[in-house]
Design a protein around this nucleic acid. Structure first.
Lengths: 242, 242
DNA sequence: CGGACAATTGAGAGACTTCAACAGTCGTGG
DNA sequence: CCACGACTGTTGAAGTCTCTCAATTGTCCG
């Protein structure tokens, strides 16, 4: 990969991303001219919650975690995003303030687009607004399911659901799943402590026939068995797609 | 109040609702002509999850609960809405299917607007799309906070936070808060069992100086005391506004 | 007044967390 | 090349929070 910030490189990247797909050449050029590619090291903070917002970001590679911190010093992970995902866009409305913090949990590459440029496009380009709206709407549904899962699913079920989603996003159809980041981080992502994750994964292994865990790879016999166990406590038509 | 479905009545109502506020007279007329006011009895179902969507709705009065049901027969309450809130709008994108069920938990009145009419407006009227986008964006942030609360707050804190939000939406500034609906329903809304709610409210009463509970009214000495206790485990700059 | 339902209370079980100890892995520096 | 330390991950025991089940009280309405 290439670390350049050249307009052409960015344009090429943007074209592959769903939300920008329907943009005309002019629009893409406009974004590309003002955007730049930012390589990030593990642990690097991109912005902090309640900070005045300047850019929104698109993930090119790696994993970005969105989180908030409380007065107590507790951390709540809101989401962990990878390629094609947009973040920082919540600052577009209201007071142009980020509503969460963002940090690279990996070696990452992101495209930074000035909020003002994006906002101008939203204000003047109706087609683009519609595709943005559609993506926001999808994100909202995803969040909705997230909330439901926290209420209804047990820790082992939540892990199962997480694995199913990982599998759904894979290119191949093998029943071997590789965990994308630290177990500690997955635990936080699923709203549980590392110890609970470890024990819950153990329980899941017992409950699901033919499931084998070796470090960060998980082998399954039948995906269906995992879905039967995990999706029992979920309202969506299983298996869950979000 | 008046149960008529006349265009003028609906237009009058719509004009008072933030998302429609910036609509031109023509747009309002277009909505009003196709919309109708629907009175609802307590317990009446408006639509079910996964059903093909026909209308979206605006709450005029009463409380509408949005929920989903799992294979197990468990129910997850997603939100409980009142005056000015929009629902059913998640069906605008994707497959025009409702992503949750909606039921009146009260005597309610709602305005039903055909999805097709709303969608057409979204597709052709840029100013309207922007104001819709802004409202969706706000809803998303609210949901975000909801998720955080479920992870970080204990049951008594969640109740405290709920009370603070009730107070923030009140017209007057009295420190007497009236619960808007059944305690059982509030419990479900906050993701806990009625028994837990009862005990948690008892605990909250003990923890917060000067708090008195009499049936469905709650008296407070200082709002600040409640916020200090509840917002400790929350990331937002207290008190929470969502 | 009685029935239906909301709300409370108690006891015990279950899920998750906390604290603490320990095993495994990886990279660094001697 | 090995030893050390830092870090991730696992395991045990005890504690906390919430849920479940069951019994009881309170309240509203016919």
């Amino acid at each position: 990969m290439n670390y350049s910030c050249s307009t052409d490189t960015i344009k090429q990247y943007l074209q592959t991303i769903p939300i920008f797909k329907e943009c005309s050449n002019d629009v893409l050029s406009s974004f590309s001219q003002h955007a730049c590619i930012k390589p990030l090291k593990k642990g690097q903070v991109i912005f902090l919650s309640d900070e005045p917002a300047t850019h929104l970001y698109v993930v090119l590679s790696g994993w970005i975690s969105l989180f908030r911190e409380t007065e107590d010093g507790e951390q709540a992970i809101i989401d962990i995003l990878t390629t094609d995902a947009l973040f920082g866009d919540t600052a577009l409305f209201d007071q142009q303030i980020y509503s969460y913090s963002a940090e690279a949990s990996d070696e990452c590459k992101v495209i930074a687009i000035p909020l003002s440029v994006f906002k101008k496009e939203i204000e003047t380009n109706h087609a683009f607004t519609l595709s943005f709206l559609s993506s926001i709407s999808a994100a909202r549904k995803k969040q909705d399911m997230e909330l439901e899962h926290r209420i209804l699913q047990t820790a082992p079920q939540r892990i199962g659901c997480f694995l199913l989603k990982l599998h759904a996003n894979k290119k191949d159809d093998k029943t071997v799943i590789t965990l994308p980041y630290d177990k500690t981080l997955i635990a936080a992502r699923l709203g549980m402590k590392p110890e609970t994750f470890s024990r819950a994964l153990g329980k899941l292994k017992k409950e699901v026939d033919g499931m084998v865990v070796k470090g960060s790879t998980i082998e399954l016999n039948e995906l269906k068995d995992l879905a039967t166990y995990s999706c029992r406590a979920c309202s969506s038509i299983s298996p869950c797609k979000t």
